[in-house]
Design a binder for these strands. Structure first.
Lengths: 297, 297
DNA sequence: TTGTTTGATTGATTTAGCCTATTGAAAATG
DNA sequence: CATTTTCAATAGGCTAAATCAATCAAACAA
């Protein structure tokens, strides 16, 4: 039963019988049969199929809701008992938005000191993807904006406020200033994240509000790309203060506060709303709560 | 997996491999193998066995906690999908304390008018048993005291206040009074519930507080027995006002308010703390909430 | 048309689940 | 203390379920 519900979750992720089967480590006929068996025992069609996967029926969506709970709890059970036997072990899968990726180290490092046998998988994702994968049990926790889009059935731990800086070099336009306005930033050619990232959407909104047209000269989904371009001294970017500090400023590389408005967004840990938490998640939350005071400006 | 967890729940109820197997509709070796398989996949001993069932290990207790959740959710899933297909069907298992048994009809009757295809099982239980069986998923809901013993992980819906009456006949001692004190009641030979019932413990406490020795001449675990004795005109009892009214008073059979103190306890519906509720439970809660205003004095 | 993708189908094989019957050990009983 | 009873584990055998590799059919795309 639980494995069949797991099949359904995989199908929801992949929208493709073959790939879902691969993800579950079974062959496609096995997964097909599993789904069909679910449909038979429940007496309803769960998946709208043509000659390929189309969508879930309303009943299918409902079953998915339960499947998330049940499969999640079954995993939590194993993890819980494992923790009783061997202390905290296993793998924590964390997805973070690109602008938060650099701060993950300040969460994982003290965590690892406390629990040396826990392995990590850190993924770079958009804020949308973070929430979707949290729902699908693909990740254990996310790090994303807490105050922008609706979050869904999750618990949150605030970590730090995201404030914006113009990252540029002395000698470049605005490079000598102690603060700049968004209107001024809008005049500078920028390297920014791609528009599917919420950080970019926030920056776009702030830039557009000034009336000026924003002119991103370079887009990337990787903060490394943006930062390495700025380090050449020939490019500028807008990024969160915390990130700029973490990546390292130099005498010529400056992070200039952007005002009018001095907008702030809260970044935090997001975990599934499950009671009780899995031991790994609980430990991560504890670590986040320890870390938060040190990060809040 | 889920069936194995169900085996474990049955074992927790019965504390006996053979009876647990019966309860699950399998033979004892099958259940034994199921438990053993659970122990192997989790890698821990769950049950302390001598030559017979002794107890659960701490890990076993933990697994039981999860099993209650997971098995409960799996049932809720089926019920939920069933409700989508055929409307509300199935069986609601309700356990009530004896003094609340008569009022169950005022809950089930309007419920059945709304949902004609739902079947009921109504059980008479002590307040302790109600909570235990709620935990073990043996019943869907309980009706018991909300304000006395610690309730555990449940949600509650208050139904009505329980006030105490001396049930006796005109002509008997105190039979003509419009109110009596607990001290006076203590002097009368009474028919009362057995001491494992919380109602009896409450009455005992109130009687003892007067300093007098209470003298129950007849004990039973059935309100029918108590009431039918009182109806002969030769016996008296203490019972909740609501119950006396429901069973029917006559010109000679009187329910006299007992004061000093005029103690009140709240009776209510108790359901497992599960989010979301099963459709049947949700409907029952809705019915209880509709009913409560009419019952509150 | 022809090749590709995708999910259903088929048939063989392995695995898991369950039962009956039995055993062994501990409790209960006389 | 001997005997009986109770209880859970074990053994052996059967059946149903699960899974896989291979194939098929429908829908698209080129």
């Amino acid at each position: 039963m639980i494995d069949k519900l797991d099949f359904l979750l995989a199908l929801a992720r992949e929208c493709h019988f073959g790939r879902a089967a691969d993800a579950c480590g079974v062959t496609q006929p096995t997964l097909s049969a599993g789904i069909k068996q679910l449909e038979e025992t429940l007496g309803v069609l769960l998946v709208n199929r043509g000659s390929r996967f189309r969508s879930f029926t309303p009943e299918g969506e409902r079953v998915l809701d339960w499947a998330r709970r049940i499969v999640g709890d079954a995993r939590a059970l194993r993890e819980d008992i494992n923790a009783l036997r061997h202390g905290l072990t296993g793998r924590l899968r964390i997805a973070a938005i690109p602008t938060a990726l650099a701060m993950v180290a300040s969460l994982t490092t003290p965590f690892r000191a406390r629990h040396p046998n826990v392995q990590f998988t850190i993924l770079s994702r958009t804020s949308i993807e973070v929430l979707a994968e949290l729902d699908n049990l693909e990740i254990d926790a996310g790090i994303t904006y807490l105050d922008n889009e609706p979050l869904g059935r999750v618990n949150t731990v605030p970590l730090y406020p995201e404030r914006y800086r113009l990252l540029t070099s002395t000698g470049a336009p605005l490079g000598e200033r102690t603060s700049v306005t968004w209107a001024e930033v809008a005049q500078v050619p920028l390297c920014l994240l791609t528009p599917d990232m919420q950080n970019r959407r926030i920056i776009n909104r702030l830039l557009n509000r000034t009336g000026a047209e924003s002119r991103p000269m370079l887009e990337s989904d990787s903060m490394i790309v943006l930062f390495s371009h700025v380090r050449t001294g020939k490019w500028a970017s807008v990024m969160p203060a915390k990130l700029a500090e973490t990546l390292g400023l130099t005498q010529t590389l400056r992070a200039i506060p952007i005002v009018e408005p001095d907008e702030v967004h809260t970044i935090g840990l997001v975990i599934p709303q499950r009671e009780p938490m899995t031991p790994l998640t609980a430990a991560l939350v504890a670590e986040a709560q320890r870390l938060a005071p040190a990060l809040s400006d």
